[in-house]
Design a protein around this nucleic acid. Structure first.
Length: 498
RNA sequence: GGUCCGUUCGUCUAGCGGUCUAGGACACCACCCUCUCAAGGUGGAGACACGGGUUCAAACCCCGUACGGACUGCCA
C-alpha cells in the first residue's frame, strides 16, 4: 500500500457541464495525486444511456482547461488502461459479470419494472426495502422458461446475508454494516450495460486506481462495492468519501435542481462561473476552503501552496452549506491583486461583449482606477463603460444630479465656470496636481470640497457612481472635460432661468 | 419506516484532554479615511445542539436524546 503509486480519478457522467461539488472532488483528487507525484485520471461514466447529453465531453474538458488542471489519462489523452469511456468497455464488464455468475456471486433475475415496484411496495409495508432476492432460487428450468418467453434478465450480485461488512474510509474511519440489511443490487442491466456498482469496481481495479474519492452519497453502497471487490478477490483501493455541498434549503446541491427564490444567479455549474466573470484561481481557492483549510488562519493561497499541505485525511466530515458570498470577496481580492496588463487583457473581451470598442492602452489606464471596485469581471463595463463609449455622443446628466444638497443651481453654474478656468490654466494635469488645485479653489470660494466636487464629477462622468474623478479627467483630457462641463452648465442654466 | 453519516459564531472554518475568558475569514454594525462608489484602517456584536458519564481537568473521549443530511432505482 505504501509503495503503490498514487492514482486518483474523477469519473463524471456526461450530463452537461461539471457541477461545482463535482469539481471540488476533482480538485481534491488532483491535489492529492500531484502532492504524491501520482497520476490523475478522467473517466467518463456513460452507462446510463438515458441521461446522456450531447457535447458533455467538450464541456468537461473546457472546465478542466479553465481551472488549468492537467489530466494524465483520459478520453482525449489516452493511456495504457483505456478506453476511458465506459460505453467502450462493455465487453470487459460483461466478461467479469459472467465470471461472477459462473462463480456463484451473481444470478439472473427476470422481474419487470412493474413487478419490482410491487415487490418494493409489499416489502415497505413490512418495514423492509428493496428487492428480496427471490430470483436466487430460480431453477434452471424456470430460467429457461423465462428466456423462452423472451424476457431479458438482469444480473444481480449476491450479497452475503449474514454477518457484517466492515469498511474503512480515510475520512470516516471504520464503519460496520449489517449484511442482513443489504439487498442484491443489479450489476448488469437487461440492455447489457453495467450499473455504476459493477463498472466502477472493474475500472478502478484495472485502471489501478489507488484512492477512490467520491461524495458521501456513496457511503451507503460502500459495503456493496466492498463485497464485489472481495468476490473478485481484488485488492481494494483506499476510499475517501467527501462531504457534500448543500443548497440554501439544506439539500444536496444539484445541477438537476435550480436554485429558486430570487437567487437564480447563484452559480452551480462550472460554466456559470466562467460566464459570470469569476477568475479560475479565485474559484479554486474558494472551493478548496470548503471542507478543507490551509491552516495558519490563511484563507488566500495558491493551488501550488495548497498542494504542499493537502491531505485527504484532513477533510471535514460534515457537509457544508454553499458559502457563495465568500466567493465574491475572494474574487475581488484576486482581481485587485492582479497585474494591470493581465487584468486589462481579461477585461477587453468583457467590454467588447458589452458593445464597446476597446483600445488596450486606454484599458491599461482604466484598470488601476476600477480594480478595487470589481467583484466580478462582468461588472466592469457598468462602472467604466462610459470611458470607452463614443465621447462625441456624450449627453449631460440631469441637472438635479449635479447640485449638491447644500448648494443651488446658480452656485453650481458658478462653480463649474470657475472649474473651467482652472482646468484651462493648469499646466500639470496629473491627478495629484488637480486635487491640490481644486482643493485650493474650494478654499478660495469658501465652500467644502464636496460642494465643489459634486457638480464636477457628475458633469464629467454623467453618472452618480463612477471611478475617481481626477484620474477620469486625466484620461478624458482637458478639452473633453471642458466640453462636458459646458454641456452641464447649459443644463443647469435652464433651471436657473426658470 | 429502515440503514448509514453528521452537528463549533448567520455562513465557511481553527481546535485533535489542560495553551479556550474558543482563534481566523465572509457577511453585519460603528468609527476613521474620503470627490461618488469601492478599497483600506480601527473597533464591535456573534458559536462549542442538549443531557448524562469517564477524568484532577472535556469543544475535544464514551453513552443517550434532539435536529439535519444521504441512501433505500435495470440513475450515478
Amino acid at each position: 500500500m505504501v509503495d503503490k503509486p498514487v492514482r486518483t480519478r474523477f469519473a463524471p457522467s456526461p450530463t452537461g457541464s461539471i457541477h461545482i461539488g463535482g469539481m471540488r472532488q476533482a480538485l481534491f483528487s488532483w491535489l492529492y495525486a500531484r502532492r504524491h507525484g501520482g497520476q490523475f485520471i478522467l473517466r467518463i461514466e456513460d452507462t446510463d444511456q438515458e441521461r446522456f447529453i450531447e457535447g458533455s465531453l467538450n464541456l468537461i474538458y473546457e472546465a478542466f482547461d479553465w481551472f488549468d488542471l492537467d489530466i494524465d489519462e483520459g478520453p482525449r489523452q489516452g493511456g495504457e488502461f483505456g478506453s476511458y469511456v465506459q460505453s467502450e468497455r462493455l465487453e470487459l464488464y460483461q466478461q467479469w459479470a459472467n465470471w461472477l455468475l459462473e462463480n456463484g456471486h451473481a444470478y439472473k433475475a427476470f422481474e419487470t419494472p412493474q413487478e419490482l415496484a410491487q415487490i418494493r411496495e409489499e416489502r415497505e409495508k413490512m418495514g423492509k426495502a428493496g428487492y428480496d432476492g427471490r430470483a436466487r432460487n430460480l431453477t434452471t428450468d424456470e430460467i429457461a422458461q423465462f428466456e423462452a418467453e423472451g424476457r431479458k434478465p438482469v444480473l444481480r450480485f449476491k450479497m452475503p446475508r449474514e454477518g457484517k461488512t466492515r469498511t474503512s474510509d480515510m475520512i470516516r474511519g471504520i464503519t460496520e454494516f449489517d449484511n442482513s440489511q443489504l439487498n442484491d443490487p443489479v450489476i448488469l442491466k437487461s440492455d447489457g450495460f453495467p450499473t455504476y456498482h459493477l463498472a466502477h469496481v472493474i475500472d478502478d481495479h484495472f485502471m489501478e486506481i489507488s484512492h477512490i474519492t467520491r461524495g458521501v452519497e456513496w457511503l451507503p453502497s460502500l459495503p456493496l462495492h466492498w463485497n464485489i471487490f472481495e468476490a473478485f478477490g481484488w485488492e481494494k483501493p483506499i476510499f475517501a468519501h467527501l462531504p457534500l455541498i448543500m443548497d440554501d434549503k439544506g439539500q444536496k446541491l444539484s445541477k438537476r435542481k435550480t436554485i429558486e427564490g430570487g437567487k437564480s444567479d447563484v452559480p452551480v455549474i462550472v460554466h456559470d462561473f466562467i460566464d459570470a466573470g469569476y477568475l479560475p484561481e479565485a474559484v479554486t481557492n474558494f472551493i478548496t476552503n470548503i471542507g478543507w483549510n490551509f491552516g495558519d488562519n490563511q484563507e488566500i493561497f495558491s493551488r501550488e501552496e495548497a498542494m504542499k499541505r493537502f491531505d485527504l485525511t484532513d477533510i471535514n466530515k460534515a457537509n457544508a452549506a454553499y458559502p457563495i458570498e465568500k466567493l465574491e470577496s475572494i474574487n475581488q481580492y484576486y482581481i485587485q491583486a492582479m497585474e494591470t496588463s493581465k487584468l486589462a487583457n481579461l477585461l477587453k473581451p468583457v467590454f467588447e461583449d458589452a458593445g464597446y470598442t476597446v483600445d488596450i492602452a486606454l484599458m491599461e489606464q482604466v484598470v488601476p482606477i476600477i480594480n478595487t471596485r470589481l467583484k466580478k469581471l462582468k461588472e466592469a463595463p457598468n462602472i467604466a463603460g462610459f470611458l470607452f463609449a463614443d465621447w462625441a455622443k456624450f449627453e449631460a446628466p440631469p441637472a438635479e444630479w449635479m447640485i449638491h444638497k447644500k448648494s443651488t443651481a446658480a452656485e453650481s453654474v458658478t462653480i463649474l465656470q470657475r472649474v473651467i478656468e482652472l482646468i484651462e490654466s493648469l499646466e500639470d494635469f496629473s491627478p495629484t496636481a488637480q486635487y491640490d488645485a481644486f482643493k485650493a479653489l474650494a478654499g478660495e470660494m469658501g465652500i467644502s470640497n464636496s460642494v465643489l466636487f459634486t457638480p464636477l464629477r457628475i458633469s464629467v462622468t454623467g453618472k452618480r457612481v463612477h471611478p475617481p474623478i481626477f484620474e477620469t479627467l486625466e484620461i478624458l483630457g482637458k478639452d473633453e472635460a471642458i466640453r462636458r462641463i459646458k454641456l452641464a452648465i447649459d443644463q443647469l442654466q435652464k433651471i436657473v432661468s426658470n
